[in-house]
Design a protein around this nucleic acid. Structure first.
Lengths: 163, 163
DNA sequence: CTCTGAAGGTTGTTGCGTCAACTAATAGCC
DNA sequence: GGCTATTAGTTGACGCAACAACCTTCAGAG
């Protein structure tokens, strides 16, 4: 399926079309499962999860945006919706009045805890369980290379460049 | 970056977060480049490319939708826009009046030919050139497994169910 | 030939993401 | 201590995608 790509060798094309297919289908599946079972998008789930595991369960908009690879604008819209739904609270930081700090409400924490097992199970079903340990290692290596190329600003995870 | 995932071993989490990061960033990059250089989305590019390489450069909506992993609804909206922009034409099939056949106009073919080199170059820059031949082979193998799991209907490339 | 169901597409609504413009607060500079 | 530039975030308008409802045409049964 998918379609032929001109000016590309067969082996290149196979890797490329495979990757782009996964990039189209996987996020759709994740959104679909979370929407069905927990009435939230994958992005909302990622935001809630990041806040929950942040120090003191509290994070600035900028920190969340960086962690989730999103823009501040998108995040602002999403957090406004989450606030209206009673899942998060926004408050101005004490030390810097420009900063908005996001925290989970108890309802937000509850919904997240309720949503997590199903999501993890889906990730296992769609990805982890399909692959051997070597596959997983290969995938980690490859996606790390691609991630560094796609967003060079994020390649400093403590290492300098030590692949 | 990205964020911790509960209930997952470190090696699983690394593969998973790497994959999801690529799935977020890569389509955005592709859309961005095509929009900037050729005023079209990656999906529009895929539609035009598929039609161009179809037998007689002509394809039904359903065939395009399957090849691009999209719904008929989405495709219908997109083709209507492409038609308004003068890049494609729609016509009823002679043999089955339900079927809409899409063809490229000369302008559509011209735009596609103009857009293709830059797109391929971007794909090379972001993906192909970053990876070794073994990486590419690994990626092809892994994405094939994932693609089969994500969309089982597309796994019949000649096999019956031979995992 | 007509009735029913399925196949192939289209259309309207609603919701999310992007972009550009904007406000407010802080840091740096002289 | 005021001026400017930068940082942090919000807002509104517009475009695209998902979902559901709908229409038309074809195939099969009697």
């Amino acid at each position: 399926m998918t379609f032929p790509v001109p000016r590309m060798s067969p082996s290149e094309a196979e890797a490329w079309t495979g990757l782009i297919r996964v990039c189209m289908l996987l996020p759709a599946e994740l959104d679909s499962q979370l929407q069905r079972d927990s009435s939230m998008t994958h992005f909302e789930f990622a935001v809630l999860t990041f806040v929950r595991w942040a120090p003191e369960s509290r994070a600035s908009m900028t920190a969340i945006a960086e962690a989730t690879n999103s823009t501040l604008s998108r995040l602002s819209h999403v957090c406004t919706r989450l606030q209206k739904r009673g899942l998060v609270e926004k408050s101005a930081s004490a030390s810097d009045a420009r900063v908005t700090e996001v925290t989970l409400t108890s309802a937000g924490r509850r919904e997240l805890v309720r949503a997590t097992p199903g999501h993890i199970e889906t990730v296992r079903r769609l990805v982890i369980d399909v692959l051997s340990d070597e596959d997983l290692a290969d995938l980690a290596r490859i996606t790390r290379l691609l991630g560094e190329r796609l967003d060079p600003s994020c390649r400093g995870d403590g290492e300098s460049a030590g692949q």
